[in-house]
Lab assay of single mutants.
Amino acid sequence: YDEVAAQGEVVRKLKAEKSPKAKINEAVECLLSLKAQYKEKTGKEYIPGQPP
């Protein structure tokens, strides 16, 4: 859960800094992968601010 939240912060920071699109896309792919792992382990969708 904490990893997903941390990666979400990374994506937000990159977007706020107007980073190159390729770098943002890479961070988003990582975030989506973490969300998929979270769902696989818990059986639930990741919802920000609602730990399992």
Rank of each mutant, 00 (worst) to 15 (best):
Y1T: 01
Y1D: 01
D2S: 15
E3I: 04
V4P: 02
V4K: 00
V4F: 02
A5Y: 14
A5K: 13
A5F: 12
A6V: 03
A6H: 10
A6F: 02
Q7W: 00
Q7N: 01
Q7K: 01
G8L: 15
G8D: 15
G8S: 15
E9F: 02
E9A: 15
V10D: 03
V11R: 02
V11I: 05
V11P: 03
R12Q: 13
R12E: 12
R12M: 07
K13S: 02
K13I: 03
K13P: 02
K13Q: 07
L14D: 07
L14Y: 06
L14R: 03
K15S: 04
K15V: 09
K15Y: 07
A16G: 06
A16Q: 13
A16M: 13
A16Y: 09
E17I: 10
E17W: 01
E17A: 14
K18D: 09
S19Y: 04
P20F: 01
P20E: 13
K21E: 12
K21V: 13
K21C: 11
A22G: 11
A22P: 10
A22M: 14
A22Q: 12
I24Q: 06
I24P: 03
I24H: 01
I24M: 09
I24D: 07
I24S: 06
N25S: 10
N25Y: 06
N25K: 14
E26W: 01
E26D: 11
E26Y: 02
A27K: 03
A27S: 05
A27E: 07
A27R: 02
V28T: 13
V28W: 05
V28Q: 10
E29C: 05
C30P: 04
L31H: 06
L32P: 03
L32M: 14
L32Q: 12
S33P: 03
L34W: 00
L34Q: 06
L34Y: 05
L34E: 12
L34D: 09
K35Q: 06
K35H: 03
K35P: 02
K35V: 03
A36V: 07
A36K: 15
A36Q: 13
A36Y: 05
A36E: 09
Q37V: 05
Q37Y: 05
Y38N: 06
K39E: 12
K39Y: 07
K39L: 09
K39Q: 09
K41I: 12
K41Q: 12
G43A: 06
G43T: 05
G43M: 04
G43L: 05
K44Y: 04
K44R: 00
E45A: 08
E45K: 04
E45L: 05
Y46F: 07
I47P: 08
I47V: 13
P48V: 07
P48N: 06
P48R: 07
P48H: 10
G49P: 12
G49Q: 10
G49D: 13
G49N: 14
G49W: 06
Q50K: 13
Q50G: 11
P51Q: 08
P51R: 05
P51W: 06
P51G: 08
P51H: 00
P52Q: 01
P52D: 06
